[in-house]
Nucleic acid binder design. Sequence first.
DNA 1: GTCTATACCGGGATAGAC
DNA 2: GTCTATCCCGGTATAGAC
Lengths: 199, 199
Amino acid sequence: MATYAKGRERRAEILRVAREVFATRGFRSASLAVIAERAGLSEPGLLHHFPSKDHLLTAVLEERDDSEIERTRRQVEEEHRSRAEALIDLCRRNATRPEMVQLFTVLAAESVDAAHPAHEWFVERYRMIRALLVDGLEQEQREGRLAPDANLEQLAIEIVAMFDGLQLQWLLDRERVDMVAPFERFIARALPGPPPPRR
Amino acid sequence: MATYAKGRERRAEILRVAREVFATRGFRSASLAVIAERAGLSEPGLLHHFPSKDHLLTAVLEERDDSEIERTRRQVEEEHRSRAEALIDLCRRNATRPEMVQLFTVLAAESVDAAHPAHEWFVERYRMIRALLVDGLEQEQREGRLAPDANLEQLAIEIVAMFDGLQLQWLLDRERVDMVAPFERFIARALPGPPPPRR
DNA sequence: GTCTATACCGGGATAGAC
DNA sequence: GTCTATCCCGGTATAGAC
């Protein structure tokens, strides 16, 4: 029992460190030696918990905050916040977690290579996010806040693009680039606010 | 003379291959062995032309198409095309050169790490591009096509973000994601067209 | 200008003791 | 569950011959 609890803590600690290291170095040039050392155990010790580097990557990706997506969904469906506000809120939250933003920015770009172990994962993740957005936008359309002939698929692509693109510039130059204000402006232009014009 | 010409061709060929390999693997996990082999010479042969991997990266970055930026500038200043059209043209051209897009997308994200050999280069490159855009937008403002109180710095950040973000999604999923049409729509909303409303 | 040979490091992963 | 020891690969870079 005590051993099991200890194992779980270890695992969690390894994942925490792996996130850090993958975020700074990307997956391929990250090393198990560094992760093991920072997690306070040996390399074979690490590989006892995650049998290979690929397994470790998978665990990091799987574990990681699709709780954020869930949170956003909840804000809209249960707390009745507008979709625009929920998106801006997500952006604002990301501005407080540069490490997580970096993890996904770096891994997503690295995974553009079809041979990357997370390639399929990212392709699917983006499809999923765009599909979620399209669903939300359809709802906006039904409620009269978007033109009936708006190209929702294209709009979803744009929203995701703005989100990612701002994150990259922000990561590279946090002193000069704010991502929240530009994203707010973009959303204000792309998604009309909560009062439905009705007619 | 013949030797010199041969040397230049070699160099060019090495750079061409290095671009390819850096684009797929990023800088850090790219290997000189692969580059040398594809360029048809040995590893020390390669290092005769570029004394280290870092030198090779520098050469790839320096050589690379800021001729594109120059081209865009020329379109606006000499061929009198609108800034909106010139940006869209650049996007359209990139859609025909996925490898070059991938090179910059992958390296830019990898260089977010302050310890990356190209970190400063990318930070400066983005500052330069935003400054160029702000200059152009000021001109648009003076010509009455942008509101006098528009936040040009923010708008420049947004344009760059959309550009990069679309490229990432497009690289990951070219079959489903078109980057030109969304960029056109975005620019149409962000930058009013050539006819200056005058009043 | 290009090669072979080599030095040397660091990578991921496994065997097997404790 | 964690370790030491070890394997074997591949990395960058250099020395020195041709």
